[in-house]
Amino acid sequence: MKDKIKDNPVILSKSEIRKIKKANNKPRKKIGEVISKNTNNNIIEVINVRKSYLSGSVITEVLKGVTLNIEKGDFAVLFGKSGSGKSTLLNIISGLDRPSEGEVIVANNNLVYYKDSQLTKFRRENVSFIFQSYNLLQNLNGYDNVETGAYLQKNKEKVLDIHKLFEEFEIEDIKYKYPSQMSGGQQQRISILRALSKNADIIFADEPTGALDEKTSQAVLKVLQYINKQYGTTIVMVSHDPSVAELCNKIIKLKLGKIDEIKINQNPKIL
């Protein structure tokens, strides 16, 4: 999940390179008072985040001072063209990557101060992922693939009933089929149930309909809308499709690594 890098690169000194490498790969040391809790009803707060990638002594800045809030229960889309920084931002707020600068507070965790093991624990306890490529285990049937999501939930009281999920989403006919026996849309539904079974506070979705036809995409997006409303799950989705943005209540438009616009959609389109 990495954006294409389009900006003109800059050549750095050795000391500047060491500084960026440390920021990108190591937890930040706590100096003075550290923001550790979300404010108001926010579940995600990003404060002046920058992200740069190094190739030898050449640096390319992908995120250039991004600040935003996402509230509990939002269905938010990170929207923009390829190279805008949306996938990089998703990686950072989900704990898959580190920012070079700035603060990232998610579900009362300031991720920039966490070691790799702490980031793994954070992801396990707080978030689920839906990928464009489904990432199903080919040797497991539909039910068992969904169950792998439930295994990641430490608090077993939060785990949702998997049989009821298959019934609720009307895909009982593929419960015991293997991925090779499913269509692309069916596989994506299984990946969505896998994310949902864990009953995490946040679901991150990176172009979840990118490999699907229009009709199947609409069905998948309808499921995501339903999850957001029925379970109150915060969903943060990456997309470059304007029709997807119409379904969300918060549209965060990125352009060349910066926030271009944040729009509150009072009347999201219902599928």
Rank of each mutant, 00 (worst) to 15 (best):
M1S: 15
D3K: 00
S13F: 03
K14E: 14
E16Y: 03
R18H: 11
K19Y: 12
K19C: 04
K21R: 15
K21A: 12
K26I: 01
P27S: 08
R28N: 04
I31Q: 00
I31A: 00
E33D: 02
E33R: 00
V34A: 04
S36M: 06
N38W: 03
T39H: 10
N41D: 15
V46H: 03
N48T: 06
V49S: 05
R50F: 13
K51D: 01
K51Q: 07
K51M: 04
L54Y: 08
I59D: 13
E61Q: 15
V62Q: 09
L63P: 03
V66W: 05
T67Y: 02
N69Y: 01
I70Y: 08
V77Y: 06
F79Q: 05
G80F: 06
G80Y: 07
K81G: 08
S82F: 09
S82E: 09
S84I: 08
S87Y: 04
T88M: 06
T88H: 04
L89G: 02
L90F: 00
N91C: 07
G95M: 01
E101C: 02
A107K: 11
A107G: 09
Y114G: 00
K115P: 00
K115T: 02
S117Y: 14
S117I: 13
L119K: 01
L119S: 01
F122R: 02
R124H: 01
R124C: 04
R124M: 08
V127I: 10
V127A: 02
V127Y: 01
F129Q: 07
Q132T: 03
S133T: 01
N135Y: 14
N135K: 11
N135S: 10
L140W: 08
N141G: 01
N141A: 02
G142A: 09
Y143W: 02
D144N: 07
D144Q: 05
D144H: 01
T148P: 01
Y151K: 05
Y151I: 15
K158M: 12
K164S: 14
K164P: 06
E167N: 10
E168S: 14
F169V: 04
F169D: 12
E170M: 09
E170R: 10
I171D: 13
E172I: 10
D173N: 15
Y178W: 11
S191Y: 06
S191W: 06
S191E: 10
I192C: 14
A195V: 11
L196G: 03
L196I: 13
K198D: 10
N199R: 11
A200F: 13
A200D: 14
D201I: 07
D201F: 01
A205S: 08
P208W: 07
A211D: 15
E214D: 09
T216F: 05
T216L: 09
S217C: 03
L221A: 08
K222F: 00
L224F: 03
L224K: 00
L224R: 03
Q225E: 15
I227L: 09
K229M: 05
K229N: 11
K229E: 12
Y231E: 08
G232A: 02
M237A: 03
M237Y: 06
V238P: 10
P242Y: 12
S243Q: 09
S243P: 02
E246I: 00
L247Q: 05
N249V: 06
N249E: 10
K250F: 05
I251A: 03
I252M: 15
K255F: 11
G257N: 12
K258H: 12
K258D: 14
E261Q: 14
Q266I: 07
Q266W: 01
N267L: 11
I270H: 08
L271P: 13
L271D: 14
